[in-house]
């Protein structure tokens, strides 16, 4: 049985061309992400996964295509309107070390989104909230980190701990969508499993929507409701994750599956 999700993000015919590359980084990519859904994107390095993430985060301009997010034409927003719309999107990148400013303490990095939007208070933070430190403490507890890390600097944390901080930061504004761009790629196997488990728990408890990007089919399969397979900037296959073993899969998906099974 296929679960139906209410769409919160709809991207149509996205195309991105870099002048220094012979082929488009993205070519006519379309996808829809529903409320509470996890859409996985899998593909080899250079297939356009991260470019797609950057375009959806509006860190890169599009050459063609439209993005509708929360019933707004998100791709054409600018200035204040764009900043407002972005409040509802979170992001977690591949390298947790690069995601935390080495000159800021964990509390300052963690609380940055909420400091910028003081009116926002995530519903999962228990009331009454008295101060910034209490919110940060609860956020760290939410991602199962000791609160003594609040005053630490990023270099004092392990890779897995740093990634948990970036996840806590991403959920702090309770966004409608979190884009996870290879969130476990730079972690050791133990930390990978722990972070994936944490992400699943958070999705269930907070009803979050994820765009989960990875070159690891196993991780994508574990996390996603639907899977899109990308190659050379195009979506070559898409299916409900339960249908991964279906015989009608694209030959490229089948080759990824062979690697996965091996």
């Amino acid at each position: 049985m296929t679960t139906t999700f209410t769409p919160i993000l709809k991207a149509d015919h996205l195309t991105k061309i870099y002048s220094d590359r012979p082929t488009p980084a993205l070519s006519d990519v379309s996808l829809t992400i529903g409320k509470g859904e996890c859409v996985g994107i899998v593909g080899e390095s250079g297939s356009g996964k991260s470019t797609l993430a950057r375009c959806l985060l509006r860190l890169e301009s599009l050459d063609q295509g439209t993005i509708e997010f929360r019933q707004q034409l998100y791709h054409s927003l600018k200035g204040h309107s764009l900043r407002q719309a972005r409040q509802h999107i979170g992001a977690v990148f591949q390298h947790p070390t690069a995601a935390l400013n080495p000159k800021l303490t964990i509390i300052d990095s963690l609380m940055e989104p909420l400091d910028l939007q003081p009116s926002l208070r995530p519903s999962f933070i228990s009331q009454p909230i008295r101060n910034r430190e209490q919110i940060a403490t609860q956020l760290l507890e939410y991602v199962q980190l000791p609160t003594k890390l609040l005053s630490a600097y990023p270099h004092e944390l392990s890779g897995g701990q740093k990634q948990r901080v970036t996840i806590a930061r991403a959920i702090s504004t309770e966004p409608d969508l979190i884009i996870l761009d290879e969130p476990t790629a730079s972690l050791d196997v133990t930390s990978q499993a722990a972070v994936l488990k944490l992400l699943q728990e958070l999705q269930q408890s907070l009803h979050l929507s994820y765009l989960f990007i990875s070159h690891d089919l196993a991780a994508v399969y574990q996390m996603s409701d639907r899977i899109l397979v990308m190659r050379h900037g195009q979506v070559v296959d898409q299916f409900a994750s339960n249908d991964l073993y279906h015989e009608e899969r694209h030959e490229y998906t089948a080759s990824l599956l062979d690697v996965f099974l091996a």
């Binding site: 900043r83 409040q87 999107i89 940055e112 504004t173």
Partner: peptide, 14 residues
């Protein structure tokens, strides 16, 4: 190019 700058931008920092 640093991710923390991009994340700040995404968070709506002017």
């Amino acid at each position: 190019q640093k991710d923390y700058v991009r994340l700040a931008e995404i968070s709506g920092m002017k």
